[in-house]
């Protein structure tokens, strides 16, 4: 479970998040959506312990978050942060050496599912295959929290499809909570339990995707558009 209470984050004078409250439960997939610069990535980095809140508290499984929370959180960055001189296998080996919860067998299964050649050099991978490799590295860790910052951004429909299906195949909803930021809302709509809309650093709404359709007859895109009007 993830809990953010009264969380404010300021970068020098710019306020990225204003007193937000969010609770995320194990067993669900959450989508965090909002315009560019609305505070999505900041929220993820705060939960991952990569940055500290200016005010408020963040807990993961009842533990106050600091840099050591990396032991409980698998974080997929929107940037490519891998060593280009490694091949796919060496990258997986490196991750296995860094995280004791890294399940090498699972990594192998996901790599195979994603049809990645273990001998390919990372710097020679296409953008799509780098996206797939990130999925392998993120999902092979057996941790209670998985955070993904823009896993679909800039990828073609086939890669997006394999990432969405890979996600459903390899997450463990009995023990994990997943939080995804994305602009590709239609692509992930069938994947999400709940969606959280963030606007100018504030939570503008949170609801169950099917309830939204059932009660308000709205898709996520329509709802977000309405909130941003």
């Amino acid at each position: 479970m993830i809990k953010l209470e009264h969380v404010t984050k300021r970068y020098l004078k710019a306020t990225a998040l204003k007193t937000i409250h969010v609770t995320l439960e194990t067993g669900k997939i959450y989508g965090l959506i909002g315009s560019n610069g609305s505070g999505k990535s900041t929220t993820l980095k705060l939960i991952a312990g990569l940055i500290q809140p200016t005010k408020g508290s963040i807990e993961v499984d009842g533990i106050r978050v600091d840099r050591r929370i990396a032991a409980k959180v698998s974080y997929l960055s929107e940037l490519d942060e891998y060593y280009g001189f490694y091949n796919v296998r060496q990258t997986i080996d490196f991750f296995a050496s860094q995280f004791s919860d890294f399940n090498r067998e699972k990594a192998e299964t996901i790599r195979d599912y994603m049809k990645l050649d273990p001998e390919s050099k990372v710097k020679h991978l296409s953008k799509g295959n780098r996206g797939r490799l990130k999925m392998v590295l993120t999902l092979a860790r057996e941790v209670p929290v998985i955070l993904m910052d823009e896993p679909l951004s800039g990828l073609d429909p086939m890669v997006r499809d394999s990432i969405v299906k890979g996600l459903i195949s390899f997450i463990d909803l009995e023990h994990q909570v997943i939080l995804i930021t994305t602009h590709e809302i239609k692509e992930v709509e069938t994947l999400l339990d709940e969606v959280i809309v963030i606007k100018n650093g504030e939570i503008a709404g949170q609801c169950n995707v099917d309830d939204l359709r059932y009660e308000q007859n709205m898709t996520i895109v329509e709802w977000m558009t309405k909130i941003y009007e």
Partner: peptide
Amino acid sequence: VRDMGIQSGVNPNTVSR
């Protein structure tokens, strides 16, 4: 539930429902 989720690209919780 999981296989149906993968086949149809849908969250396993939705399939349960």
